[in-house]
Amino acid sequence: MRPFLRVRHAVVALFLLSTAASFSQVRLAVRPPIKRQRHAEAALTPDEQAAVTKNCGENGVPKLAPDQNFGSTTIIYRKGYVLEHSAFDKIPLWVCEGFNKTQWDPSSARTDNFRPDPLLKPGERSELTDYEKKGFDRGHMAPAADFGSKDLKNESFFLSNMAPQAPKLNRVFWKNLEDLVRKWSTETSPIIVYTGGFFFDPKEESPATANGQVEFKRIGKNNVAVPTHFYKVVFGKNDKGQMRAVAFVLENKEAPKGATFESVIQSIEWIEDHTGITFMPDLDTAVSAKLKHTPGKLFSANADQ
């Protein structure tokens, strides 16, 4: 595994004072030491296990790298998705959803019922006020449009399923990517999608330019971290029933002019190296290597498989 380059022990503010006043509440934050928390070690309830099987598949929930300190995290199990939430960054590290077409088609009306997640303690979660007038969208990680039923769509609006996302990314390229990926699932061919934000600086790739820090912003009273990048990893099966996968990485800003879905494809291995997250940890080693080592291909360039 290549060196894991995200370094999260310090924060350097980015002041975008030349932009509108809406950015003025983006401020300098300093990280306190991250302390790992404890959890009781009972197993999952049948409902939680069912949520894992549906949304993350048979190959396990994503695993965090044991040599990285992610601080306190909570795994939240819902019918439509499973996620691991960071109490320190107040965003999900990963959100997984497994679904076929019957989940999202036909779709009910969107309610925009954004709200804090009652399964997380105040102080360890983002609140509605954290996002107000900060210049970032409450970007769904499991998109509302992936859920046709009112109940499932409604649960996608918990803030635990959100991360601050640049509006020009969220509402354009990212939305188009979500639409494309969703339509890769058919009645008979489910897909599993992992989505999350992470912290990356290309300068850290080279010893000549690396300084051991990744700059990013925090917003609101609860210091919600603004990811520098987002990833989306998709697993599915081809016509022969063989597993296939493709992954995308986008910077948290308007996509470059001329960007195509192909141009933002990245290998899953790269994403794992830069997030510290292993997706489908129980996948057969040979299959995992084949799927993760080289960048995948679009399942199809449009809604038709």
């Binding site: 790992r36 928390q37 404890r38 959890h39 009781a40 070690e41 965090l64 044991p66 040599d67 990285q68 300190n69 992610f70 601080g71 306190s72 995290t73």
Partner: peptide, 11 residues
């Protein structure tokens, strides 16, 4: 007797 573990890191 084991009763809890550390979250998000080494076992």
């Amino acid at each position: 007797m084991h009763f809890s573990a550390q979250s998000g890191g080494a076992s």
